[in-house]
Design a protein around this nucleic acid. Structure first.
Lengths: 256, 256
DNA sequence: CGCTGTGAATTCATTCACAGCA
DNA sequence: TGCTGTGAATGAATTCACAGCG
């Protein structure tokens, strides 16, 4: 099935880097739609998306030839093509696992409901929160995970639990047939071939910012000696720097 | 200042891709520390971090020669070197702007406090939330933004407001001297040269997952016709697909 | 003419494979 | 011997620059 007429469609496979930018273009295009703009040039759209125009054109060329030379792109048409390419013309059923602070924020997040993503279930292990109604859904107990996934036909699981629980829950959702996972817990999840995991990690983003911030201030270590082994001796075997090391995992990513 | 003795340090500049992975290595190393493991090979550490060992070794080689041939890396030492490189041996003062669901989740997030990041202020525009105490901090009014930034020496701003407010607030924090921004609002922020912005966008992550999920199911469009202009005629100029387009921006990213 | 679409050139990142040191 | 550290090889992404079409 699929591929009926192959007009100009690039054969197989859009580069990952391009896929990651398509949602950004889509958002910029929606914003143009709202302002009633019907046509846009690569230069303008690129500016709105925060990339340069050559990159934008190359990205779009991977989807096909959807522009008009000398004119630009028709906004509505491009919205449709990108949406279709991203799979947003169909609905995806999402379950949120872990209804702590973050889980709640996600459950109430407009972005989920608004464009092809339907949050169908919230799950948690804490009896104090099971049964509560959040964002119009009743929180189910984690024991019901497999049943809930089958019941609703969940295809994307969002993991917003503490680090310690994440891998076991991931294993369970995968065993139950889910092949896409969005992970907010600060662990590297191991999954079998064919399962896609994406990770959102606040701590990592901050650390990357810190790196650049430090670089601006002039090189690493700022004041600390570069030679460590000598200091090790000073301190005995402990080898501690400014702060004592954290007691446990970096982050406990929310939990009710 | 800085660069005293230049031993084996790679001259200037660690690749971005490497910087983005250092926090992952660091977390894996912390986990090893907790388990009392003193030494680790590139193979083991790479497995824990979810990368291959050649990549890990090359990444670490950008920091210097911190391993021992035939043995591996000393965990404590490597933790210190990576921390220093990332700038985690000093404290960074963070302000969270927008105390909606997400802002609250962030304020309570262990990862901020636990490793060099100190949340010093919460700000919001909503009078109903200003003055409230959240995670041990009193929420200040957004009018006080500049004062609060100066007062606490904020160097990283976290923007967790609705999309519409984000750019204006970003301009203000930048004008107040902040050069690192972590943006949760679904907009592309424009900033002057020298200011670093990182973006966390839940909607984009989901869309990328949807793309891969769709690909597994076999090509885009799944059932929808590929030729669109004909359908355009059918529908008049509206050109709407399955769902009506969202009313406004994709996402309103939280707000009290 | 003004713009898109795209080969060619370049830069950046990953992987290979092994020399060299502990 | 067993590992790290790294040149060299490969592959991916970006950018350049312009041919070609509306």
């Amino acid at each position: 099935m699929t591929r009926r007429h192959n007009r100009t469609r690039a054969e197989r496979g859009i580069p990952e880097a391009t896929v990651a930018r398509l949602p950004v273009y889509l958002r910029a295009l929606h914003s143009l739609q709202e302002r009633g703009i019907a046509t846009v040039s690569s230069e303008e759209l690129a500016a709105a998306a925060g990339v340069n125009s050559a990159k934008l054109r190359k990205d779009l060329s991977h989807l096909g030839s959807y522009g008009t030379r000398g004119v630009g792109y028709e906004v509505d048409y491009l919205v449709y093509q990108i949406s279709r390419e991203l799979g947003l013309t169909q609905d995806w059923v999402v379950a949120i696992i872990g209804v702590g602070n973050l889980g709640r924020a996600l459950a109430g997040y407009g972005g989920f409901a608004s464009r092809g993503f339907r949050v169908a279930a919230l799950l948690d292990a804490d009896p104090a929160v099971v049964g509560a109604e959040i964002a119009g859904l009743t929180v189910r107990h984690i024991d019901e995970l497999e049943r809930v996934i089958a019941e609703h036909g969940v295809s994307i699981a969002v993991i917003a639990t503490p680090a310690a629980a994440a891998q076991a829950l991931c294993d369970r959702v995968v065993a139950a047939g889910v092949t896409s996972v969005l992970n907010f817990a600060p662990v590297v999840l191991a999954v079998p071939e064919g399962v896609e995991v994406r990770k959102v990690d606040l701590s990592i983003e901050l650390q990357i910012l810190a790196f650049h911030e430090q670089r601006k201030a002039g090189g690493p270590g700022d004041g600390a000696a570069d030679d460590w082994s000598e200091e090790l001796d000073e301190h005995g075997d402990g080898a501690r720097r400014e702060r004592p090391p954290g007691t446990s995992e970096y982050i406990e990513a929310v939990e009710a």
